[in-house]
Simulated assay, not measured.
Amino acid sequence: MHSQQQNSQKTTTMPIGGFVIDAQGREIPITEEMIQQACNALEKAQQQTTKRK
């Protein structure tokens, strides 16, 4: 039973140790998905910058 609980936690979006404060002052947990999206956006922006040179 315990391993099932661990597996279900991995499939849900878990905070990884930080928070973003939104415009209303609420703490939003930073998730792995948020970091992956930011990294993908940076990579895409870098590729666009490289193409312009």
Rank of each mutant, 00 (worst) to 15 (best):
K44C: 10
G25I: 12
N40Q: 11
Q47M: 07
I35S: 09
N40V: 10
I28V: 04
P29R: 02
N40S: 06
E43F: 08
T31Y: 03
E33A: 06
P29Y: 03
C39A: 14
L42H: 13
P29T: 00
V20S: 05
E32H: 06
M34S: 13
E27S: 09
E27Y: 03
A45P: 04
G18D: 15
Q37G: 04
E32K: 15
Q37C: 07
Q36L: 13
V20G: 10
Q24A: 11
Q47A: 11
N40F: 09
G25H: 00
L42S: 14
C39E: 12
T31N: 01
Q37M: 08
E27K: 06
A45N: 15
Q37H: 10
M34P: 07
E43N: 13
G18N: 10
T31V: 04
C39R: 15
Q24Y: 12
Q46A: 04
G18S: 13
A45E: 13
M34Q: 08
A45I: 07
A41Y: 07
E32T: 15
E27P: 00
R26K: 13
A23H: 05
N40A: 08
T31Q: 06
T31M: 03
I28H: 00
Q36K: 11
I30L: 10
E43P: 00
A38P: 03
D22H: 05
E32C: 06
G25T: 09
P29A: 02
Q37S: 13
Q36W: 06
I21F: 04
V20D: 05
I21T: 07
I21K: 01
A41N: 12
L42Y: 08
N40W: 04
L42T: 02
A38E: 05
G25K: 02
F19V: 09
I35W: 12
Q47W: 01
N40I: 10
Q24P: 00
G18C: 08
N40Y: 10
E43Y: 13
Q24I: 02
E43G: 11
D22A: 01
Q36Y: 06
G18H: 13
F19E: 14
I28Y: 01
T31D: 03
I28M: 00
F19D: 12
M34H: 06
I30Q: 00
